[in-house]
Design a binder for these strands. Sequence first.
DNA 1: CGTAGCGCCTGCCGGC
DNA 2: TGCCGGCAGGCGCTAC
Length: 286
Amino acid sequence: MPEMPEVEITKRILEKQLKFLKICKIQIFKKELRWIIKNELKKLFLDCIILKPFRLGKYIIIPTNKNLCLIIHLGMSGVLKIKIKNEKLEKHDHVKFTMLDENEKKSYLIYNDPRRFGFIDYCYNNKLKYHFLLKNLGIEALSKGLNSDYLLKKFKNKNISIKIALLDQKIVAGIGNIYASEILFLSKTHPLFNVKFIDVNQAIKICKSIKLILTRAIKKGGTTIKDFKNPDGKLGYFKQQLLVYSREGKKCFVCTKIIKMINFGGRATFYCETCQKSSKEFLKEI
DNA sequence: CGTAGCGCCTGCCGGC
DNA sequence: TGCCGGCAGGCGCTAC
């Protein structure tokens, strides 16, 4: 489910609904996620008061008043659900936090993840940037620092296709497989274009497209392909705006030629051969 | 060193 | 109807 816009949507709702709640109970029904949830987490976070959640790339960070923060990643199929009633568990509910507000009213945060590629970890607030999963994150996709200079610097001495580069969280944090195809279509860049040939003009276009696509997706509440729901249970509506992703065999909205799908790096990539044309010599072999 | 490919999981869909 | 292969929004690890 989640690329950065979906994670951002999730975070915004957590921000509204979890702030200053006290964690009074933690239940772990399945600790074998991407990594095994550490035993001590349950005890450590008891009686912690939740401060303002934030996002780093596709990670959600939930800081607390005890210098500890939760690190949550939703993997491919993870969702966080907030409930105000103590409802029966659903399939693939793996972790449940019970929380209290200042009037002792309970609410519940539930981590649900069918494929279990996501995880929950924790660390000390001041050690966050040294956490092994966060320390190598590249620049935030929507930050000002993401500009053509930054991209060109990162692309220097690399010999990979632009599609692979956009998915590399060490370069830019937040882009996933759906939006990578969309971004390349918008910037008229062939997905196999070798980053070592990207010039300033192309880098500027790519930066603009990254920001435009992700900002639009956030506005639409993210993309629901199959199972993304925000913590309020709402769906995302960016799917209707997708220009190339999952449109193989259909007509390009711009030139009416047929959208192609290719597979590399183990992921599907959708593009328009006409709109994203490139001389062969600039493409990365696959 | 950088890069390509694998594997972790469950569920769903299309083809036979 | 049922079974099977392929595929899915991510990402760290391993082998080269």
